[in-house]
């Protein structure tokens, strides 16, 4: 009987370890709200001015900039990522396929600070001297962020396309269609929810990304709604990193930065949830 008791204790212990994620997520929510709730008011959510020394904490310009940066980067990542996924799934064979796949995987892992640094020393001067402005700009943010978003889009959409049964391809090719006709008429329509999921997930990643973006967008002292793609901007993540070090603990400034964190957390969580639901629905349909 001693063994049965020991086995039961072990099972409980393992369950406890598995619950660690629940505890951590709960603690994150509790502490984010404990610090940020005092700043989460109407003026915060709809204010146009962010001016800590004047006790003004309106997030609209920052939120708008965040979405401009995120959507633009996503656009570039879609234009390059979806064709790349089509190539990997429909047009390529090993070893080319595995070379590209592993370089895409590597790209996900490259420390974002290194990517941001690369952007700062290569991309920013490139824009400054060839296009104009200060170089640190929305455009630079789009490009760097699209590189970070790309791998997520490629891998999930490729999975969705490869999941389309081979019989579809064979049937279409046997009728004399080209690979591209097959892809357009059969593969993409059948994989579209997976592709869509990858885009939503990519958006979540783009908005939550911090260091790489921070390094190349300039972060002007006063957040504003940009007028051109060569303007400097501030996003949710960069504002937090830059200001948290000089916000006095216990001040409205600090609460507001945590409230920014709550907004960021909420937006990213909703996007992740949507993409997960799409994928789950897709799996359910397929079985």
């Amino acid at each position: 009987m001693k063994r049965q008791i020991r086995e039961a204790i072990i099972e409980k212990g393992l369950f406890l370890a598995a619950s660690a994620s629940i505890i951590i997520v709960m603690l994150i929510i509790i502490f984010m709200f404990a610090e940020g709730i005092r700043a989460l008011n109407f003026d915060f959510l709809f204010g146009m001015e962010w001016w800590p020394s004047g006790e003004k904490f309106g997030i609209i310009p920052t939120v708008v900039s965040t979405f401009i940066i995120g959507l633009g980067a996503l656009g570039i990542a879609i234009i390059i990522g979806i064709p790349c996924a089509i190539f990997l799934s429909e047009y390529s064979r090993d070893p080319i396929r595995s070379i590209i796949k592993s370089s895409v995987e590597m790209l996900v892992g490259i420390p974002s600070i290194v990517l941001g640094f690369f952007g700062l020393v290569v991309l920013v001067p490139l824009i400054r001297y060839n296009i104009g402005g200060l170089g640190e700009s929305i455009l630079a943010g789009w490009i760097i962020l699209s590189i970070m978003t790309l791998p997520h889009i490629i891998s999930i959409s490729e999975d969705a396309m490869r999941a389309v049964p081979n019989s579809f391809r064979e049937g279409s090719i046997a009728l004399g269609s080209t690979t591209w006709q097959t892809t357009k008429a059969l593969i993409i329509p059948n994989a579209k929810s997976g592709i869509f999921a990858s885009i939503v997930l990519g958006m979540g990643n783009a908005i939550g990304e911090t260091m790489a973006v921070l390094m190349v967008i300039g972060n002007p002292n006063i957040p504003w709604i940009p007028q051109s793609i060569l303007d400097q901007v501030r996003v949710l993540t960069s504002t937090i990193v830059i200001e948290i070090s000089y916000a006095i603990w216990g001040s409205m400034h600090q609460y507001s930065l945590f409230a920014l964190g709550i907004v960021l957390f909420a937006v990213v969580s909703v996007l992740n949830l949507i993409s997960r639901l799409i994928i789950k629905e897709e799996i359910r349909k397929r079985w």
Binding site: S21, I28, V241, G261, V268
Partner: peptide, 18 residues
């Protein structure tokens, strides 16, 4: 899955507060 989706800066803020 949810923990995997938390932006790293939020983890940073949480670490700071907690």
């Amino acid at each position: 899955e949810s923990l995997a989706g938390v932006p790293s800066i939020v983890i940073g803020l949480f670490g700071l507060a907690f």
